[in-house]
Design a binder for these strands. Structure first.
Lengths: 137, 137
DNA sequence: TTATATGCAAAACATTTGCACTTGA
DNA sequence: TCAAGTGCAAATGTTTTGCATATAA
């Protein structure tokens, strides 16, 4: 099997590549949505059924802590994950379908910096989520 | 006891004013921070110790559904509440202390409208939280 | 070889709920 | 009076953890 992008990053970071982590890395690499732990458990198990939910959680935490994954907690009660891109972006969540749309806006980023600065703070990170419905329905 | 602002709103909405709700309304009226359920339970119990945590949760949900309270889920795992103001605002959370600072920025609001529109959506609500640390520490 | 990772089941944690009892209007 | 609210304890759903076993390097 070709070594996927996530697995490459793991090796780069010196993480021990177990069979389970390889499968989870593969699943994440080929997922272009924002799955939750349960969903990743299902997808991983379809490939190798000796992966427990506990390992999914432990691996997701490991990958997040190593800057390989980003964890999001949208207003649906469960954490969802996506692979880290080069470019920062925020999210618009379709309330009706749960679909997540990514967007970027340099101006909003700058405005946030300005606001934090004015309040005497340095931004560590932020969360901007727009909950919306499709027009003309 | 003088009827507080929250209690007034409850009466306006036709909510039945039980002893427990009066106490919780009073606590909320005099709280100018963003307490979680456990904290509100403590504060309410200090006034009247016949209030259960279940009632706190039920009341918080009731008040939220009636537009009396706003519920926030910052990245600390528990929901926090604040009384609804006239003016919309967003939050900056001090990572070190947990302190929450409110801010308003008309420009950011407009930009979000613009982005959603461009994507073909109408905004229902949004969440903008800046996680930051104090400068010059 | 051995520090680290895993599976399993139990625990943790915030929140919700069923049920018998109480209370506000 | 009686629909609605409450306390209590048990249940929930997601995530974490202790421990004995397995495995990568």
């Amino acid at each position: 099997m070709v070594v996927n992008r996530i697995e490459q990053k793991c090796i780069q970071k010196g993480l021990r590549m177990t069979e389970q982590r390889k499968v989870i890395a593969q699943v994440l690499s080929s997922s272009h949505d924002h799955p939750d732990a349960e969903e990743l458990y299902k997808r991983s198990n379809a490939i190798n059924n000796s992966i427990s939910l506990a390992t999914i959680y432990r691996t997701l935490k490991l990958f997040s802590n190593n800057g390989i994954l980003e964890k999001h907690e949208f207003k649906d009660g469960k954490s969802r994950y996506e692979t880290v891109h080069k470019d920062h972006h925020d999210h618009l969540i379709d309330i009706d379908t749960g679909k997540v749309i990514e967007f970027q806006d340099e101006e909003i980023e700058k405005l946030q910096e300005k606001i934090a600065n004015k309040l005497g703070y340095n931004i560590i990170n932020h969360r901007l989520e727009i909950y919306a419905v499709k027009k003309n329905k």
